[in-house]
């Protein structure tokens, strides 16, 4: 059935909105697109209602380019900024309740494996630091302990940006945000360390400062989750509203934070590393 879901029924193309005609004719479905091809293909996400200069929106746009098979991918998200862009992307999106994204993803992944035994279906959870490390913490950890084969991406803006600036578990110690005027009293949660302890097969930390690295990291994370085990990507996506970063300085901030405390980090299990090497050897890597 592969790409049949992306074919317009005979006779209806002329009634379809331009955006959908473009997706059918020039979308990234069923083929490999590279970051350098931007502008020559219809992206999965274009319009969205997120704030001007939003690093998260930029990251999501790049991450969607990194999906190895967007036509066979389902995204899962929850309350927060990220879902506003994700729900408008041209791939299926499931809105989990706050706290149950990884439970929903577990069910989806297992169900899809039964329903489509011949076709790999990728499930990617993409939620904020609140959704992953605070409210969804328990289900995230248990999905890792169970070695569920899907990717978890944390959009870490280090604050509850969508609700006015409360501190999250991922806010840095001492940081003052609008609704945490005394400054945060505790350290940022070490989710990377927890992922390692839980035996996650592929772990990465990055910022959107290097777009091609975002694309390749997401691709690797999804491929590992498809065949080996859970993968986790933690990305710094500043909230330029809550942290008062001018829209045109958002990437400068990302570069600075990357230099100071959010440097690129990749922790790959032996099995995952061998698998990624085999994929690269077959020419399936390097988008």
């Amino acid at each position: 059935m592969a790409l049949r879901t992306l074919q317009v029924a005979p006779g209806f193309m002329r009634f379809m909105p331009k955006e959908y005609q473009d997706l059918v004719e020039n979308g990234p479905f069923g083929r490999q697109v590279k970051l350098s091809d931007v502008g020559t293909f219809k992206e999965i996400l274009e319009e969205h209602p997120m704030c001007e200069g939003c690093a998260m929106a930029f990251f999501i746009r790049l991450a969607l380019m990194g999906l190895p098979n967007p036509e066979h991918t389902i995204m899962v998200g929850t309350a927060g900024c990220g879902r506003m862009a994700l729900s408008q992307a041209a791939i299926p999106f499931v809105y989990g309740n706050y706290c149950d994204t990884n439970g929903v993803a577990t069910g989806l992944k297992r169900g899809l494996a039964i329903r489509f035994p011949e076709q790999d279906k990728d499930v990617v959870v993409m939620a904020g630091d609140g959704g992953i490390a605070d409210i969804g913490f328990s289900q995230v950890m248990h999905s890792w302990f169970r070695k569920e084969k899907f990717t978890t991406v944390m959009l870490d803006n280090e604050v509850y940006g969508n609700t006015g600036g409360q501190e999250s578990g991922m806010t840095c110690r001492g940081t003052m945000v609008k609704m945490a005027p005394r400054g945060k009293q505790f350290d940022k949660i070490d989710m990377l360390g927890l992922a390692r302890t839980a035996g996650v097969a592929y772990i990465a930390r990055l910022t959107p400062a290097n777009p091609s690295r975002v694309v390749s990291t997401i691709r690797k994370a999804v491929l590992v989750a498809r065949k080996i085990g859970p993968s986790y990507v933690q990305v710094y996506t500043s909230c330029n509203i809550e942290y008062s970063i001018p829209a045109d300085k958002v990437l400068d901030d990302a570069r600075q934070v990357e230099k100071e405390r959010y440097g690129y980090l990749e922790i790959v299990s032996e099995e995952a590393g061998a698998y990624l090497e085999s994929v690269a050897a077959e020419g399936g890597e390097g988008r």
Partner: peptide
């Protein structure tokens, strides 16, 4: 009916277009 996602969609899509053709002044908005 808009996406040709499985067998049986095309005949139904054709029937819908045929229906529309019979209604004077009709529009199709997907």
């Amino acid at each position: 009916v808009l996406w040709d996602w499985r067998d049986g969609v095309s005949p139904k899509a054709a029937a819908v277009l045929e229906l529309a053709e019979e209604i004077p002044g009709v529009q199709i908005i997907p």
